[in-house]
Each structure stands twice: as C-alpha cells, then as structure tokens.
C-alpha cells in the first residue's frame, strides 16, 4: 500500500527531468494498478529500494521517445549507449528526489539500466504495481512503482 505522497515524489522526479533537461514538461496519464508481471519498453532505468519499503521503481521508455528527448537536449548522438545513459539519468533523478524527500526511510541503490529483452517487473508479494503513464509530446513512457 503506497501513499499518494510517495507516488508523487517518484512522479515529480520523472516529470522534473523532462521539464529541466528538455525544457518541455511531461504530463502524466491515467495511473492504474497491475497485479501481474509487467513488461517493459526497450530501455529502462531502475532503482532498487530497501528500508521502510522494498522493491523497485523503474522508468521505462520506447526508443523513439528517447531519440526525440535526446534531440531536445541538443544531443547529436542517438546511439545505444546514449539511450542507456539517458534512462540512467532519469532514474538518477528519481532516486535523488526520493532521497531528498524520504531521507533515511528509504535506501536507494545506484540506478541500473535494462534494455532489450528484460524480465517483467513482478509486483511485491501482497502488493500491486503502480503504473503511471508519462506522456511527453506524442510519446508515452511508463513510471513503474513496485514497492511493498
């Protein structure tokens, strides 16, 4: 059971990245719950949380969206490594926000980047996974919060 405030912190971490780095705010779509394992997009930046809550928070996005995002950041390299760096940075921002707002309640790992065929995100035992669609320009990514 995740509190609204906690959810907001992760969401803000994500939208903040778009607003600051790409100078164009992202909006969030209609959030929902998932009880089954959840498949990810091509690129995902993931942080592991331990402490008061345990699980993962993950930003997952399709390649097309990342390419446009890089363009807006005046980046000229759209290679695989750059994509990886980008989702890593988003995860980094989410983790920073969470550290600031939750302090010692949460311990947060350095971001990990997943790409290609990745195992789906499993809900924590007895809990549901929150999926928050992130809309930016005509693209959509997901913020996945699977904490228990």
């Amino acid at each position: 059971m995740l509190h609204e405030r906690e959810l907001k912190v992760f969401v803000e971490g994500t939208t903040n990245f778009f607003e600051v780095a790409a100078q164009q705010p992202a909006s969030i779509g209609s959030p929902y719950l998932v009880e089954e394992p959840l498949a990810l997009h091509e690129y995902s930046g993931l942080i592991e949380v331990t402490g008061k809550r345990e699980g993962v928070v993950c930003f997952t996005a399709p390649k097309t969206m990342l390419a446009v995002l890089l363009m807006k950041m005046h980046e000229t390299d759209f290679g695989h490594e750059t994509m990886r760096d980008l989702v890593g940075e988003v995860a980094n921002t989410i983790s920073g926000n969470a550290r600031r707002d939750f302090g010692n309640d949460f311990r947060i790992s350095p971001p990990r980047v997943l790409f290609g065929e990745t195992p789906p995100i499993e809900p924590r035992p007895g809990a549901r996974t929150f999926v928050i669609p992130i809309h930016w320009r005509s693209h959509s990514a997901k913020l996945v919060v699977a904490l228990g």
Partner: peptide
C-alpha cells in the same frame, strides 16, 4: 560521471 550525456552537456 558514468553518463556520456553529462560530459557532452558540459562540453556544450
């Protein structure tokens, strides 16, 4: 920084 993005942003 483990991200090249930051490096390029500093360069710019």
């Amino acid at each position: 920084d483990d991200s090249n993005l930051i490096r390029r942003r500093v360069e710019r």
